[in-house]
C-alpha cells in the first residue's frame, strides 16, 4: 500500500514508508513473538491431534457399533503408524497411515491426508478396509471452513455418506441428490468444501492403492513408483 503511494509523494520520496515505521516495527515484533508461541505450543497441539487420531482409529475402521463394543469389553486394537512415500511425476508425497490390527489380523487402515479447502487446509482421517475396496469411516481432524456452510463437513450426517462407499472407483460430488453408491451429496452452499474433501479422498486412495495392497507387511517405507 505504502510502496504504491510512494511515487506520488514527490519531494519526500520515502515519507509514506517513514510514516509507517510503527506498523513495520510492530509487524516484526509481533511476528517474532508469534513464532515463539508456535515453537512453544506447536508440539503440544500436534500431540493433541495425535491423541485424537489414535482415539478415532477404532471407530473409523470398525464403525461406531463395533468400536463401542470393543471398548466396553476392554479390548484394544493394535495401532501401528507408518509413513508411506508416494512418488508422483513431479513430486514426492508422504502419507501417515495407521495400521489397525486385532490379534494379528489386519482390520483396516486409517489414512491421514490434508488438502486445501475453501478457507484453509482441511485435515482428514480416512478409514479403509484391508483390501481397499471400501471406505469404512471419515473424520475431519482440522478445518476452518465457513461457519454454517462449509463447516457442515464435520457433521455426522454428511460424513456418514462416505461410510461403506466404494473405494475402487472415483467418488463423484452430486448436487441433485445422490442415488448410486459412490455419489456424494454436496453441502448446500459449500460446493468447494465438499469437492475438496471428496477430491482429497480420491487422491489419497489412488496414491495408496499400490503401496498398501502390494506390500502390506513391510514396515516403514512402503513406497512404490507410480509415475
Amino acid at each position: 500500500m505504502d510502496v504504491e503511494k510512494k511515487s506520488f509523494a514527490g519531494g519526500l520520496k520515502s515519507s509514506n514508508l517513514v510514516q509507517a515505521w510503527l506498523v513495520m516495527v510492530l509487524a516484526v515484533g509481533f511476528g517474532i513473538s508469534l513464532a515463539g508461541v508456535q515453537l512453544l505450543l506447536g508440539p503440544v497441539i500436534e500431540g493433541n491431534k495425535l491423541n485424537e487420531t489414535l482415539e478415532k482409529v477404532p471407530e473409523l475402521v470398525l464403525g461406531n457399533f463395533l468400536a463401542a463394543k470393543m471398548a466396553s469389553e476392554n479390548q484394544t486394537l493394535e495401532i501401528v503408524p507408518r509413513q508411506v512415500t508416494v512418488k508422483k511425476l513431479d513430486r514426492t508425497k508422504f502419507y501417515i497411515v495407521y495400521e489397525a490390527r486385532y490379534q494379528g489380523d489386519l482390520k483396516g487402515w486409517v489414512v491421514k491426508t490434508k488438502g486445501q479447502g475453501y478457507a484453509d487446509t482441511i485435515e482428514l482421517l480416512l478409514g479403509l478396509s484391508p483390501d481397499l475396496r471400501s471406505i469404512t469411516g471419515l473424520f475431519v481432524l482440522d478445518q476452518k471452513e465457513t461457519p454454517g456452510l462449509g463447516n457442515k463437513i464435520i457433521t455426522h450426517a454428511w460424513r456418514s455418506q462416505f461410510v461403506d462407499a466404494p473405494a475402487d472407483r472415483t467418488l463423484v460430488v452430486i448436487k441433485t441428490g445422490s442415488s448410486r453408491p459412490g455419489e456424494i451429496d454436496v453441502v448446500t452452499g459449500a460446493t468447494i468444501s465438499s469437492r475438496s474433501v471428496t477430491a482429497m479422498i480420491n487422491t489419497a486412495i489412488g496414491d495408496l492403492r499400490n503401496p498398501l495392497t502390494t506390500a502390506p507387511s513391510s514396515q516403514g517405507k512402503g513406497g512404490k513408483h507410480n509415475g
Binding site: 510492530l26 509481533f30 513473538s33 508469534l34 508461541v37 508456535q38 505450543l41 493433541n48
Partner: peptide, 19 residues
C-alpha cells in the same frame, strides 16, 4: 495488527490446552 497477534496467541493456546 495488534488484535490479530493476540487472537492468534489465544487460538494456539486453546488448541494446546483446551483442545
Amino acid at each position: 495488527l495488534t488484535i490479530a497477534t493476540f487472537v492468534t496467541i489465544a487460538d494456539r493456546f486453546l488448541a494446546a490446552y483446551l483442545y
